[in-house]
Amino acid sequence: MTDQQDFAEALLAAESTFPPGLSTWNGSDPGRRFAVYRNNVIVSLIDALADTYPVTQELVGAEFFRAMAFQFIQKNPPRSPLLAFYGEDLAAFIETFPPAASVPYLADIARLEMLQVQAYHAADAAPLDAGEISQLLANEPELPRVSFTLHPSLGILRSRHAVVSLWAAHQTDDVTAALAEIAPNTAEAALVLRAGLDVEISRIPVGSAAFIAHLQQGLAFAAAAQQASAADPEFNLAAALCLLIQGDAITSVSLSTTP
């Protein structure tokens, strides 16, 4: 064990403790002073999670959220000095955390909030203009093989729960009234996309979400449309494309070599 390893382990320990080798000028208990560091580390990390996951926290209440976050931090302390994205794996943790099981949509709400943070800080990229997209129509036979590069901020979440409605209810003035209208166990899909400086979260049809997710994974135009039709009989390709075009979400097109 090195000195800093002892120190680090005591910082994240479940019970208040302190490492060997500390001294105080007045001979007072070093544990009391070490607790300042424990507090700084743990509270700042809990606060970082609370900043990233405000709706997740509102759903379960601050007391439960902070206690859950403490357990998460001990299991998954930050692995990077960049705290902006700390807690990417909170959703996975929630799914395995039995006390949260009574709120089955909690993990997907957390996923949506992390997508929002990722979209906020994602790279800037200029969209194709309408003229450039129109040119695709000039070469119709190649259209099935066209690949679309989508904006770096774009994220798709497909959930078995009413994630977007639940999230949106928390953006209103009267959260209780808005929530009373929501049946949580209704499948919804979210499109997360930065528009200018604002991250926009939209509820989109499940088929559109499948289509966009497949494009993002690199599938060509025809293949992505085929997959989306299979996923959702109601899939409306024109509406899905409209979402991307009006969201300035297409940043380049190319011809893929595989269909």
């Binding site: 000195d3 800093q4 120190f7 680090a8 580390v41 302390p77 692995r79 000095p81 705290l83």
Partner: peptide, 17 residues
């Protein structure tokens, strides 16, 4: 100060002997 050990980042400015 130090702020992390091994793979773990502790998000505080910690003291050095």
């Amino acid at each position: 100060a130090w702020a992390g050990h091994g793979e773990v980042f502790l998000n505080d400015l910690l003291p050095v002997p």
